[in-house]
Design a binder for these strands. Structure first.
Lengths: 224, 224
DNA sequence: AGAGTTTTCGCCCCATAGTCGTAAACCTTA
DNA sequence: TAAGGTTTACGACTATGGGGCGAAAACTCT
């Protein structure tokens, strides 16, 4: 079967989409959305199909495979293999979810069915790691944003403060962000209008090249 | 079913363990070792069991899950899910392998059965990436080694030259390596004896902390 | 006009990577 | 024993890029 860890930053907090089980085992407790495969179906197709009831597929800005769980004890009744996926939803969207489904802060989860808590935490770790060496932030952020807004998104996803100055310089240097010409008008409290940025690419790319593994030679990427 | 991409640096070249199929489909062509699960078996147990015929399990210095393949077209006959694992063997070992099994350089593979070529390349990419931001090198290297030997290992696995000076400084600073007191006597051509090093840990650890995701504050890890 | 807010940007420090050149330690051969 | 060749070790220098700070800019409101 396939399971989905769907994450979104809501109200400044990283949250996960959970579904309340209607049947035993673990009747009534919260669990990850997902379900069985049908014949000749890709795992990715399967999780997209199961998620379609919960979130509009077009609202998923990113979907990648996490891992496949196979512990014989993970389900109390039958031996069940499950492949977990990580899905991300941009923070400006508010998908309509069914009544048995709701968002829960990843810090402070209720008791989850099966091994789903560990899967959620694995998804959060994957997100945190990739935020640093890829452009995965595009999947959390709206189409346009100020640096302050992006800093709050990163802080929520990473779980600690982020320096806005640094974030801007680093992401610009890595050519992850680019400025639109536009400005965001200040709020009722006033303040200087913030410049609006966007991610250059909407697909996953590795932005960090490491020291020892970088091919030698004086040729360096031009700053352009 | 489970599949294993078992990599080792042999003769200064990154090689993968392949098995020649005895039955259709793809009879006679090379493929990854692996096979079906038995009930109540973990995927990791399964791949270890299937690999036991090829390589002594104790010779595997590292084993981690790569991904689960589910394309309905990946097997010409039946719909088949397969979970691929990446296994590593230290370069000083030379496992006895059956006659239908042999090592092949990852650069210059023969035509492989199913989608196995893509899986091998995915395994190589995982190795290359993790060599840079983890201590995964421990799984390729012998118990003790000189910096030159380690440099050759890294160069083979990464596919490009590596500076020995840099490699030593970086891995020492990250506290990935530590010096044993010993020296390796020079070869017949002479030369200064090389100092012997070892990896501090034999389990996977992340050694690189990234800029923007690093928690703020002046506190830095003491150089000790 | 002045006070309060928020964003922007320049400046400086420092940690670490990359390169190079020289010294050290060993072999073989004359 | 001296000289030349080979390999490793290590210091010096440079470049890059992150981290932090503070001042300036651009607003709103009173």
């Amino acid at each position: 079967m396939s399971l989905g860890v769907v994450l979104q930053v809501r109200d400044g907090v990283l949250q996960v989409l959970l579904w309340q089980r209607a049947r035993a085992p673990f009747e009534g407790s919260w669990s990850l959305p997902g379900g069985y495969l049908v014949p000749d179906e890709t795992l990715e197709t399967s999780i997209r199909r199961h998620l379609a009831d919960k979130v509009d597929v077009r609202e998923l800005s990113h979907l990648e495979q996490l891992e496949t769980l196979s512990d014989p004890q993970r389900s109390p009744q039958e031996w069940q293999l499950a492949t977990a996926y990580l899905g991300l939803v941009p923070s400006e969207l508010d998908p309509r979810v069914p009544s048995d489904t709701d968002w829960h802060p990843v810090d402070g989860l209720p008791a989850l069915a099966f091994d789903h808590e560990a899967i959620v935490l694995a998804g959060r770790e994957r997100l945190r790691a990739k935020l640093s060496y890829t452009n995965l932030g595009f999947a959390l952020a709206p189409a346009e944003f100020t640096i302050s807004e992006l800093r709050d998104l990163y802080a929520a996803a990473l779980g600690h403060d982020v320096s806005a100055t640094n974030l801007q310089r680093v992401l610009l240097r890595r050519r992850v962000l680019e400025g639109t010409g536009r400005l965001r008008p200040p709020g009722p409290a006033g303040g200087r209008p913030g410049a609006l940025f966007r991610f250059r690419k909407q697909t996953l790319e590795i932005t960090d090249q490491f020291a020892v593994l970088r091919p030698p030679g004086p040729a360096r990427v031009p700053v352009a």
